[in-house]
C-alpha cells in the first residue's frame, strides 16, 4: 500500500513546529502503524533526514507509551493504542496526518513525542493506597464481592496513555483521574483515603492546567482500555461529598 504522510516536526518544546510531507511506499497491509513509521524512518535516514521521533515501547497495547494523533483522532481509527493499529484499516493512497497528543499540560518533547509527567504528578498527589511493605493482612482477610472487584478492574485497566485528554476538545483529564479514583475508591482497602484522594487528585489535575469536562465523551470513545465515562460521574459524586465534608469541617 502507498500513503502520503503529513507529519508534525518540532525540534523542541520552545521551537515552532511544522508539517512535513513524506511518502510511505510499499507498506504491507499487515504492518502496524508504528512499523509503517519505522519503514518511513529507515528511508529518511538513507536520505540523510533525521527520522521522525515518536514515543513507543511495548508495541502490544499495554504500556501506554505510543501517543500519536492520526487524522485528528488520538490513536487513530478503531479502539486501541496506536501500536495496535494496522495499516489494513486504511485505504491505499490515503493522506494521513500525524500530530502529537495536544494539550497544554503535555509540552512537545520533539516531533511527535510529548511530556506526560503531569499524569505522574496527579498520581503522586494521592493516587495510591498508603500501605507499608510487609504490613498487609492476609490477602483473603477481606472478601471483595466479585462484581466490585471486576468493576474496580474496569477502572484499573487504564494504561495512562493520555488519549482521553488528547481527544477531549477541552484537554480534560477527567477520565484518567476518575479511573484512578474509581479503582481505588471501590475497593475496601482504598476507602480510608477516599475523600482525601478525590480532593487531592482533582486539585492537582486543575493545577496542571487540564480543561473541564463538557460531557462530550470523546475520552471514552478513544480510550484503549474501554473505560466508561460513568467513572467521571462517580468522581463528581465523590468530589461533591468530600467537598461538603471539607467545607463543614467534618473529618475526611
Amino acid at each position: 500500500m502507498n500513503f502520503t504522510l503529513r507529519v508534525w516536526r518540532q525540534n523542541g518544546p520552545a521551537e515552532p513546529g511544522r508539517f512535513e510531507e513524506y511518502p510511505a511506499l510499499d507498506i504491507p497491509a499487515d504492518a502496524s502503524f508504528l512499523e509503517m513509521l519505522d519503514i518511513v524512518n529507515e528511508g529518511l535516514i538513507h536520505k540523510g533526514v533525521e527520522p521522525v521521533q515518536f514515543d513507543h515501547d511495548c508495541r502490544e497495547g499495554i504500556c501506554g507509551t505510543c501517543s500519536l494523533t492520526i487524522d485528528g483522532v488520538p490513536h487513530g481509527p478503531g479502539r486501541g493504542t496506536t501500536c495496535q493499529l494496522y495499516m489494513r484499516k486504511f485505504q491505499d493512497r490515503d493522506v494521513i496526518t500525524i500530530e502529537p497528543f495536544r494539550a497544554a499540560p503535555f509540552p512537545v518533547v520533539r516531533d511527535l513525542a510529548v511530556d506526560r509527567r503531569a499524569f505522574d504528578r496527579i498520581i503522586q498527589s494521592g493516587g495510591f493506597i498508603s500501605e507499608r511493605t510487609g504490613s498487609a493482612p492476609d490477602a483473603n482477610a477481606t472478601p471483595i464481592p466479585k462484581p466490585t472487584a471486576d468493576f474496580a478492574m474496569d477502572a484499573a485497566a487504564c494504561i495512562g496513555c493520555a488519549a482521553c485528554a488528547a481527544a477531549c476538545p477541552n484537554s480534560s483529564a477527567m477520565l484518567f483521574v476518575s479511573a484512578k479514583i474509581g479503582h481505588l475508591g471501590l475497593l475496601p482497602q482504598g476507602i480510608a483515603e477516599k475523600n482525601r484522594r478525590v480532593l487531592n487528585l482533582v486539585r492537582t489535575m486543575d493545577e496542571e492546567g487540564f480543561g473541564n469536562c463538557s460531557n462530550y465523551y470523546a475520552c471514552e470513545a478513544v480510550c484503549p482500555a474501554g473505560i466508561p465515562a460513568s467513572f467521571i460521574a462517580r468522581m463528581n459524586r465523590e468530589y461533591t461529598a468530600a467537598s461538603v465534608k471539607e467545607a463543614i469541617g467534618a473529618t475526611l
Binding site: D71, R102, A103
Partner: peptide
C-alpha cells in the same frame, strides 16, 4: 470561566478537526 480555561488547556488545535463521539448538541 470554564470556557476560558478550556481554551487555555488546548492552545494548539489539531490540524485535522475530527469530532469524536460528541453530538452536535454538545458542540
Amino acid at each position: 470561566l470554564v470556557w476560558k480555561e478550556n481554551q487555555a488547556a488546548r492552545p494548539q488545535k489539531y490540524a485535522v478537526n475530527a469530532p469524536i463521539q460528541t453530538t452536535i448538541f454538545a458542540r
